[in-house]
Amino acid sequence: MLFDIGSVGKNYLATLILQLCHEGRLKLDDSISKWLDHYPNIDGGITVRQLLNHTSGVFDFVKHPDSPWQMIYQSTKIWEQKTILNELVSAPYFPPGGGWHYSTTNYILLRMIAEKILQTDISNALKTRYFIPLNLTHTVCIDPLGSAPSKIIIANNWSSAGYVDLAPKPQPWTTTSPHLIYTTSADLARWIHFLFYEKQVLPAEYLGQMTSFHSPAPNDPPLSGYGLGLMYLDAELTEKAFGIGGVRMWGHGGNTFGFKSLVMYLPDLETTIAVLINDDRDQGLETIFIGLLRAVTGHLR
């Protein structure tokens, strides 16, 4: 069965942006005004790097009271990216570079930039650049306006609103970037392992950029730092959060209606752990992840 990975998809998109930089088609310090039209409450001087590491100050549309994310499976409106940027982005948290605040709006802007450069949908780019070459045969981007393909089995989700069978249910309000990546825990672990252990996806220069963590990255979620599409927990925070000391980790977490995801690479142990569940309560995900983390650290030490 496949699981919705939510915001873990930000890491795939960040990787694509860095690959475009490596190809000379984009620069991390480009202002977004070079690539995009003007939108209310979005400063054209924001850089691509500031979008990637959430230092842009752009308001997180997910938190807007009219956002579809505030209406669990209630919204039937098809939310286009430009509509979101015009209607659901309130005043910025701070001027560009003036702080840190997690914002999914950043990744809508990044998606628009990538699609303008590539002249194709982001799902096609991920498929041709990553899913097929890396043999990630259980990783797909699904059209949110249609039903899942007949050969795809999606884990039914359990959200705070109750049970929802997603397989036949269009999700016209979905605006994640990229749209609806579904995968297995094995494929997700392999993706991160290819990226950071085998180093098959990005050259060293851009892996270094991705793992240059902006700190502090406070509050929600609690992090030691945030790189380019990458969350960082130092050894102190790992011990505080999971009760296991002496371990650094980086990766990403995701949370959407009825699904939670977490994938972390442990650089000191050269190991990747990925957990996907079809439940949006923290306890289930944390219990499984902590159990695996204890097993891995105990065995490798």
Score class of each variant (00 low, 15 high):
138 H>E: 15
41 N>Q: 04
17 I>A: 09
280 D>T: 00
220 D>R: 14
106 N>V: 10
240 K>C: 03
2 L>F: 03
37 D>I: 09
4 D>H: 04
177 S>N: 05
124 N>S: 04
262 L>A: 07
211 T>N: 05
167 A>M: 11
172 P>W: 12
213 F>R: 01
103 S>M: 03
4 D>C: 00
235 A>L: 07
298 G>F: 00
157 N>H: 11
95 P>I: 08
93 Y>H: 12
100 W>L: 06
116 K>N: 08
3 F>M: 03
54 H>E: 00
172 P>V: 11
163 Y>K: 14
117 I>M: 03
110 L>A: 11
221 P>I: 15
170 P>H: 09
212 S>P: 00
56 S>T: 08
147 S>I: 14
131 F>L: 04
176 T>E: 07
149 P>Y: 10
282 D>T: 02
128 T>M: 11
279 D>M: 03
45 G>A: 05
166 L>I: 13
184 T>C: 08
53 N>R: 14
268 D>A: 08
203 P>K: 10
279 D>Q: 06
289 F>L: 12
277 I>H: 00
23 E>K: 11
178 P>M: 02
262 L>V: 08
285 L>K: 02
271 T>S: 09
17 I>W: 00
292 L>M: 06
254 G>N: 06
15 T>N: 04
174 T>P: 00
82 K>T: 15
98 G>V: 02
32 I>M: 07
46 I>T: 07
135 N>I: 03
9 G>T: 03
43 D>A: 03
2 L>N: 12
248 R>A: 08
15 T>E: 01
199 K>V: 11
105 T>F: 01
235 A>T: 13
165 D>C: 15
122 I>L: 13
248 R>E: 13
227 G>Y: 01
300 L>P: 05
116 K>H: 07
43 D>H: 09
113 I>M: 12
199 K>I: 13
228 L>Y: 08
195 L>N: 04
260 K>L: 13
126 L>Q: 01
158 W>A: 09
